[in-house]
Amino acid sequence: MNRVLITFPERCTGCHICELVCSFEKTRSFNPKRSRITILEDEQQGVSIPVACRHCTVPLCMEACPTAALYIDALDGVVLFDEGACIGCRNCVLACPFGAVSIDPLTSDIIKCDLCNGNPPCVEYCPRDAIVYARADRVNIMIKGAEAVRLREAMQLTNRSRRA
């Protein structure tokens, strides 16, 4: 079964470690602005939102590309980018509804998550498990599980008030 990458904004604290290790993986230097994953922050309200490529099954970036530089890997469904075929029109940047395709601030090239051959360091290093790369059934359970915990807490509260 294919794995999917999913982010949990409520777990993210805005440490930007994902950006550091991503930029290192891709450039052997540290530069959050060259990272394939980006954390957007409202520091005043204490909100951090990870923005990462979702590797859509119908990738609009791919559909927008006139030279087929973006394609789906037949083996694992990852949306990949072929630098050699890219003409730099940046249609893909505009087409992605999540802003997950970026422009490298140093080279102006397209940069996009390729899931690092199945071992993305952003996932490995995230200290809060806010970025997860797992089998679809596990992801389903994770999301349902969080809701179940909330329900259980609510039930316990009700029981307690009944006893009182």
Partner: peptide
Amino acid sequence: RASRGSCFSCAIQCKYI
């Protein structure tokens, strides 16, 4: 406590709002 925060590049993350 409204949320948990962090300084840049920190895994301990003691900050909060």
